[in-house]
C-alpha cells in the first residue's frame, strides 16, 4: 500500500471515529434537550411544533407540593443510601481484593446480585420482609425513611463494589509497602496512603450511588411511608392525570441540579478520571 493510501485510510478512520462519537453524543443528549425544550412550550399538550414559549410551567411545578416533597425525600434517601452503601461497599471491596480469603469471588457475586434482580421484585420482597420484622420484633421499617434508605443501600452497594474493586486492582501496592517499611502502622498506611489512592473510585461510587438511588422508582413504590413520596413517584403520579410541560419543567430543574453537583464535584476531583 502506498504512503498516500495509508494517509487516506487513516483520515477515513478518524472521520468514522468522529462520526461515531457525534452520533453517540446526539443519542445521549437528545432526550435531555427535548425535555428542556418541552418545559418552555406554551401549550397544555406536548405537541410539535409548539405554538409559543413560556416560563409558566416552572411556576406551576414549583406550586405542585408533591414535586417539592418528593424532591426533598429523594435527596434525603439518596444521601443516606450513598453514605451507607459507599461505606459498606468500600469495606467489602477491600476484603474482596486484599484479604486473600477463600470464597471472595462468591461474596463479590452476591454483592453484585441486586443488579440482576428486577427492582420491583426487590421492592415487593423487602416490603413483605419488613412486615415480618414489624410483626416479629415491633420495629416497623415501612414507617419512616430508614426502610427506604436500607432498601436503596442494596442498590448502591453493587455499584460501589464494582467501581472500588476495579480501582483497588489497579493500585500500586509498592507505595503502601514503602510506607510500612518506613515504620507506618497498618492504620496509618490505610488512612494516609491506601484511602487517598482509592479516592477516585470512592467518589465515582458515591456519584453513581446517589444518582441510582435518586431516580429509583420501582423499589420506592412499595416502601415509601404513608404521607411521603419520592420525586420519581410524584412524576409518575402526575403523569397519570396530566401530561403537560410542568413535568418537563420539574425534570429540567432536576437535570440542572445534578449537572451543577457534577460540575462542583469536578472542581475537586476530575470526573473524567474517575468515571
Amino acid at each position: 500500500m502506498t504512503r498516500e493510501a495509508l494517509i487516506d485510510s487513516g483520515r477515513i478512520a478518524r472521520f468514522l471515529l468522529a462520526a461515531v462519537i457525534v452520533f453517540v453524543f446526539i443519542t445521549l443528549l437528545t432526550p435531555v434537550v427535548l425535555v428542556v425544550w418541552a418545559s418552555f412550550f406554551d401549550s397544555s399538550f406536548l405537541s410539535f411544533p409548539p405554538p409559543g414559549y413560556t416560563l409558566k410551567w416552572f411556576a406551576q411545578a414549583a406550586e405542585h407540593g408533591a414535586f417539592l416533597r418528593g424532591f426533598e425525600t429523594s435527596a434525603k434517601v439518596a444521601f443516606g443510601a450513598t453514605c451507607l452503601g459507599v461505606f459498606l461497599g468500600t469495606a467489602a471491596s477491600l476484603a474482596i481484593v486484599r484479604s486473600g480469603l477463600p470464597g471472595m469471588k462468591l461474596i463479590q457475586g452476591m454483592l453484585l446480585s441486586p443488579m440482576i434482580v428486577p427492582n420491583i421484585v426487590i421492592g415487593i420482597a423487602l416490603y413483605v420482609f419488613f412486615i415480618r420484622i414489624a410483626d416479629g420484633i415491633g420495629i416497623d421499617l415501612t414507617n419512616g425513611l430508614w426502610g427506604l434508605i436500607l432498601a436503596h443501600t442494596l442498590l448502591t452497594i453493587p455499584w460501589t463494589v464494582r467501581l472500588v474493586c476495579a480501582n483497588l486492582v489497579g493500585l500500586n501496592r509498592s507505595i503502601e509497602e514503602a510506607a510500612a517499611n518506613l515504620g507506618a502502622s497498618p492504620l496509618r498506611v490505610f488512612t494516609r496512603v491506601t484511602l487517598p489512592m482509592m479516592r477516585s473510585g470512592v467518589i465515582a461510587a458515591a456519584l453513581f450511588s446517589f444518582i441510582i438511588s435518586f431516580e429509583n422508582l420501582e423499589v420506592s413504590l412499595l416502601l415509601v411511608q404513608p404521607g411521603s413520596t419520592t420525586f420519581p413517584i410524584a412524576v409518575l403520579q402526575y403523569l397519570e392525570f396530566k401530561m403537560d410541560p410542568a413535568v418537563a419543567a420539574a425534570t429540567t430543574v432536576q437535570v440542572l441540579i445534578v449537572a451543577s453537583a457534577l460540575l462542583i464535584s469536578d472542581r475537586y476531583v476530575k470526573l473524567s478520571r474517575v468515571v
Partner: peptide
C-alpha cells in the same frame, strides 16, 4: 431522629391512612 418513626407509633388515636393515586386526585 428518623429512628423514632420506626418504633411502634405513640397513640395517635385520630389518624387514618388513606391509600390513593397521587397527582391532582391526591391534591
Amino acid at each position: 431522629m428518623p429512628m423514632t418513626s420506626i418504633l411502634p407509633a405513640l397513640a395517635n388515636d385520630k389518624r387514618v391512612v388513606f391509600g390513593t393515586w397521587g397527582g391532582d386526585s391526591e391534591r
